[in-house]
């Protein structure tokens, strides 16, 4: 059965030459004033370590979540640091006059609300959290050759059982597109494996515009379980 609530987040819109890393449990959000739609994993780390304060010309300021799965996933997958190491890092910046202690909020909802109203704010929340009023940044390395236009899109099935149990979330796929525009290969990068299987089956039927060479795309598909 096809579900009308299946939303395509960045499907076919965001093409990458390569993908650094992804996290199934966390997504990166930013205030609408931030011009960038994508951020590389390296730049994301530099933003949160206060080595970089702008993205595509927009000022950005990191925001932390106090604890929880999203926070742990973010530390592990994007910063590669423990909580203690991160706190020591920020204290070092603070006590040497080289930086500041980022604002820390207690929940996904607080982070989303703060990011929505604060110019330049960039934070992270769990994949399942509502991102109303903020933009979700895709993680990867932007391609040097322009994005491939999606010509034919097939919507993925939302398995009944999962739908009934309100099990949803974002599925992230790495898609290999031939020069002719056919999807040659799909790899699940993150998210629920059953939803991932469904999404992969649909994406394999997609057709892109012909290009000069084979390219790799990262595709995020949201199964809205609410």
């Amino acid at each position: 059965m096809k579900c009308p609530k299946v939303l395509l987040l960045a499907a076919g819109l965001t093409i990458f030459a390569s993908v650094d890393s992804v996290a199934g449990d966390v997504k990166v959000i930013a205030n609408a004033s931030v011009k960038a739609d994508t951020i590389s994993a390296a730049d994301l780390k530099r933003v949160f370590l206060e080595e970089k304060s702008s993205l595509d010309g927009s000022h950005v300021e990191p925001l932390l979540e106090k604890e929880g799965r999203a926070h742990e996933a973010f530390l592990q997958e994007y910063l590669g640091m423990s909580e203690d190491d991160l706190q020591s890092y920020y204290q070092t910046l603070l006590f040497t006059g080289r930086g500041f202690m980022p604002k820390v909020l207690g929940s996904d909802a607080e982070v989303v609300a703060y990011v929505a109203r604060t110019q330049g704010a960039i934070g992270y929340v769990s994949s399942a959290a509502s991102a109303e009023g903020v933009k979700t940044l895709a993680i990867g390395v932007p391609s040097s050759n322009a994005e491939r236009k999606l010509i034919t899109r097939v919507e993925p099935d939302y398995p009944d059982t999962l739908k009934r149990l309100n099990i949803g979330g974002t599925v992230r796929l790495r898609v290999s597109i031939s020069a002719k525009g056919n999807v040659e290969d799909v790899e699940l990068l993150g998210g629920n494996p059953i939803l991932g299987e469904s999404a992969a089956a649909a994406v394999k039927k997609w057709v892109y515009a012909a290009g000069r060479s084979r390219t790799i795309a990262e595709v995020s598909i949201l199964f809205d379980g609410r």
Partner: peptide, 16 residues
């Protein structure tokens, strides 16, 4: 604070 080697500028931060 003067940057010199690994720890000159953080030498007072004992907790590190």
């Amino acid at each position: 604070k003067t940057t010199l080697g690994l720890y000159n500028d953080t030498q007072d931060l004992d907790f590190l």
